[in-house]
């Protein structure tokens, strides 16, 4: 090798591989550190007391939402535009997502935004919609999800989910984890009885029941929080 001691500047650096790698690491690391760390420490979303963790049945429903890749076609983020608040409801606040692991804001609206879908339709509507989307929404391009009406939710499985969510930081108590099977059944029976009123026969442990529970919860806490905040002003 030639003598490179006379080299200056970048040409010199190109001969120092380790230093080059360290510099590249630092330069590539700065941006993320500056943007992300303050969000975790000093500038995080303000807590909303109305926003509480998902119930076990809603957790089960959310797992199904993830499994089926609903986020690929549906966003959960109402933007602060007049056209969006007219269509969907109040724009989405950061604090509303406090217990969303993972976040499901989405990046594409092949179908409509779902962040305010909770309470928009009766349970039976969702039941029919997943069975045959075109029955409730003529012209829809969504595929049917009729297997949700046959598959069962496993309480032990959801117990594992709730336990992992607590480890990750969601404030569930010991009693919440122990009581997962009962909580699942109780909330499931409520939905089943509302479906019965609409002439639909379903079982509390059908996957569709869990998905309905999750969808009916979406944006509800946030709506209450926004309403209360406005009342206080």
């Amino acid at each position: 090798m030639a003598d490179h001691t006379q080299e200056k500047g970048h040409r010199w650096l190109e001969g120092k591989a380790a230093l080059f790698a360290i510099l590249a690491t630092v330069v590539a690391g700065i941006g993320g550190a500056v943007e992300i760390i303050p969000l975790m420490t000093i500038s995080g979303p303000e807590a909303m007391e109305e926003v509480t963790p998902y119930t076990p049945l809603e957790v089960a429903g959310r797992d199904i939402y993830l499994r089926e890749g609903c986020y690929v076609c549906h966003s959960q983020m109402v933007r602060p535009f007049r056209s969006e608040t007219l269509r969907y409801g109040p724009w989405s606040r950061a604090g509303e997502y406090a217990y969303d692991r993972p976040f499901q804001l989405g990046s594409r609206r092949i179908g409509p935004d779902l962040h305010r879908v909770g309470g928009k339709y009766p349970d039976a509507w969702h039941y029919e919609h997943m069975q045959d989307p075109r029955a409730t929404s003529p012209g829809s391009v969504m595929p049917p999800y009729h297997w949700l009406h046959k598959r069962k939710v496993d309480p032990a499985d959801i117990q594992a989910s709730v336990r992992a969510l607590r480890t990750a930081g969601t404030p569930y108590a010991d009693a919440d984890i122990a009581g997962v099977p009962e909580a699942l059944a109780e909330q499931g029976v409520g939905i089943v009885s509302r479906l019965k009123d609409a002439g639909i026969d379903a079982k509390p442990d059908d996957e569709i029941i869990a998905l309905i529970a999750y969808l009916q919860r979406l944006g509800v806490d946030g709506r209450a929080a926004i309403k209360n905040a406005e009342a206080r002003q």
Binding site: I36, L39, M40, G44, P45, D63, A94, G95, E96, Y97, A98, Y99, D100, R101, P102, F103, L105, D157, A160, S161, R163, A164, L165, T167, A168, G169, T170
Partner: peptide, 18 residues
Amino acid sequence: IPATFTRSYPVFAGMTDG
């Protein structure tokens, strides 16, 4: 945090996770 062999939940939540 893994819940089962095929399922886990991120340590970050909400907008931070986003």
